[in-house]
């Protein structure tokens, strides 16, 4: 899809951020681009931790990004609209899923990717001590499921049935 190089990492949020910060520092970037959160843990914590460790300002939840020289400007999504947020680079931004459709990997791109460098580095090579994890998972259980209720085919009587449920719930 386009990146020149890729690196791999994996751990709790703070250790992830420490490893990423150490690796990113070596690249001296103007702009670090993250997603808002991962799908598994959904903690959303790595980007602000990374910004703090790099000493960068953070411009987050961007649904639009403009870079003009050493100024980065984003439209930061909020609960009721958006904010225009500006900072000087170097900076870290997080972008929402709505910012762009990922382009399809072309056959040419897939072929070219094979020859691109993927650096595997040990945390210790980056000078990151693993130490005691900040958090540990004690157990994982299936989320409590709601019980299924009644399912009806709409044969013209569905509206009446919904009205009855609304009345019983005292919202009508």
């Amino acid at each position: 899809m386009g990146p020149e190089r890729a690196s791999l990492a994996g751990a709790d949020a703070l250790l992830t951020a420490r490893v990423l910060a150490a690796a990113i520092k070596q690249e001296e970037p103007d702009l670090v681009i993250c997603a808002t959160e991962s799908y598994d843990g959904s903690t959303g914590m790595v980007p602000p931790m990374l910004a703090e460790l790099l000493g960068f300002p953070q411009l987050t939840f961007a649904k639009k990004v403009e870079v003009d020289g050493s100024t980065v400007k984003v439209h930061r999504q909020t609960a009721d609209g958006y904010q225009v947020v500006e900072a000087s680079t170097p900076a870290l931004i997080t972008v929402t899923a709505a910012i762009a459709e990922p382009r399809y990997a072309s056959l040419k791109g897939i072929m070219a990717a094979r020859s691109k460098e993927i650096k595997q580095v040990a945390a210790s090579e980056l000078g990151v001590e693993k130490g005691q994890p900040a958090e540990t998972i004690e157990g994982v259980v299936e989320a409590e499921a709601r019980k299924a209720g009644e399912v009806i085919e709409d044969d013209g009587s569905a509206v009446e049935k919904i009205v009855q449920v609304l009345a019983a719930a005292k919202v009508l």
Binding site: A13, L14, A17, G41, S42, T43, G44, M45, V46, P47, P48, M49, L50, A51, E52, L53, Q58, T60, F61, Q77, T78, A79, A134, E135
Partner: peptide
């Protein structure tokens, strides 16, 4: 959204454990 950004930076600064 606002709190989690502050919490992340604070955890990194204090080296604190964090549950989000």
């Amino acid at each position: 959204p606002d709190s989690r950004e502050v919490a992340g930076r604070l955890a990194a600064r204090l080296g604190a454990g964090l549950i989000s």
